[in-house]
Computed example of a mutant assay.
Amino acid sequence: MYNNAVINLGAKCNAACAHCCFSCSPASTQSMDPNYIRQLAHELAENKKINLISFTGGEIFLNYPFLQELLEIIKPYQKRITLISNGFWGISRKKTEQYFNDMEYYNVTNLTISYDEFHEPYVKADAIKNILECSRDFSNTSVALNMAVTKSKMSNRILEYMGESLLGIRVTKFPLMPVGEAKHEDPDSFQHIYKLSNERSLHCPGFEVVYHFDGQIYPCCSPAVFDTKLHLRESMDQTFDRTIEKLNSNLLFYIMRKEGFKWFIDTVQNNPEFNHIEIPEQFSSICNICNILFKTEENIDLLTPYMMNYYESMV
């Protein structure tokens, strides 16, 4: 458990997508200190419990020399690497082949391309097509396409344009959540595909340690968690192992793992001090519910006595 870590390098991006959970843009300068990132890469690479390290942003290929430097730090330790990109660099066939050669050298086992109708104004579809086609010559790096969708932006036209380049490629459409820039989207455009009445949908999909460019450490990589108070950092020199200790010892996360979100939802709905929290009957993802429940310190403070009662009843 907890054998992987994610590093979110920064909010600088070649795009300023209307749905971006981090509000990334070409003008953004928000990022972690490069020296801290180097130190973090060394620590994660040297930790024998970790076998997978992921890099995301922003757009991580904008500063490719720095990304290479980080991959070079990790390479001697034979960790698996995952990269997440919008694929803007795919417009150059020569550069695409160079990057795939590098990815094989650095043991990048997975490349996830984020592309949909929100990215389309900033990244040419032909760039993505080039990446998908080129990936066939580099079988050691598995490529996947992730698409954020709404009722009016299902990206079917893009998939049709990609044609045969998609053959053998895993494509995932996921409903957009109202976080980050997506808060400004028409509320009626969100696809609420889950229901509170279905208890099977009320469980957290999983935990992983995420080092975010805002300076915090989060317990997962969901876009919704970065707009909550579910922070794990207690100091800037906090080790990965200490972070795992906090994840394992935190009562809130223990209840979340053991009981799912139903326990929290029932607590909120059955006690008057939580009248300010509205839990929708239908939602895009359980991460939406997590965002609503733990958005403020006040909410967590109000839940704390109930969590302590839960703990005392279990002892």
Rank of each mutant, 00 (worst) to 15 (best):
N3Y: 13
V6R: 13
A16W: 02
A18Q: 04
H19G: 00
H19M: 15
C20D: 00
C21I: 02
F22L: 10
F22T: 13
S23G: 03
C24V: 02
C24I: 05
S25T: 07
S28A: 15
T29S: 15
D33S: 15
P34E: 12
N35C: 07
Y36C: 05
R38P: 04
L40W: 02
A41C: 09
A41Y: 02
N47M: 04
K49H: 14
K49Y: 13
N51P: 01
I53Q: 04
G58L: 05
G58S: 08
E59D: 11
N63H: 12
P65F: 02
F66H: 03
E69D: 13
L70T: 01
L70S: 05
K75S: 05
P76D: 00
Y77P: 03
Q78D: 01
L83P: 13
I84V: 15
G87M: 03
G87S: 09
G87A: 04
K94I: 14
T96R: 05
Y99T: 00
F100W: 09
Y105L: 06
Y105I: 01
Y105R: 15
Y106N: 04
N110C: 08
N110R: 14
D116N: 14
H119Q: 12
H119N: 08
P121H: 02
V123M: 01
D126E: 14
D126N: 09
K129Q: 15
K129F: 03
C134G: 01
D137I: 00
D137K: 15
N140C: 07
V143R: 01
A144L: 08
A144K: 10
L145T: 12
M147A: 08
M147F: 01
T150S: 15
M154S: 12
M154C: 04
S155H: 02
I158M: 06
L159I: 15
L159M: 15
E160I: 05
M162D: 05
E164Q: 12
L166M: 08
L166W: 10
G168F: 07
I169A: 02
K173D: 10
P178I: 06
P178T: 03
E181Q: 15
E181F: 10
E181V: 07
A182Y: 14
E185N: 13
D186H: 08
D186L: 00
P187N: 11
D188G: 06
Q191F: 09
H192K: 15
L196E: 07
S197K: 12
N198C: 07
S201I: 01
H203W: 14
G206K: 10
V210N: 12
D214P: 05
G215F: 11
Q216A: 07
I217H: 04
I217R: 08
C221W: 07
A224E: 04
F226D: 00
F226G: 06
T228Q: 03
T228A: 07
R233Q: 08
D237W: 05
Q238N: 07
F240D: 00
R242Q: 10
I244K: 05
E245V: 12
K246R: 13
N250C: 14
L251G: 00
Y254T: 13
W263A: 01
Q269C: 06
N271E: 03
F274T: 06
F274N: 00
N275G: 03
P280C: 12
E281I: 04
C287G: 11
C290A: 11
N291S: 15
L293V: 09
E297G: 03
E297M: 08
L303Q: 08
T304S: 15
P305I: 12
M307C: 09
M307Y: 11
M308I: 13
E312L: 11
M314G: 00
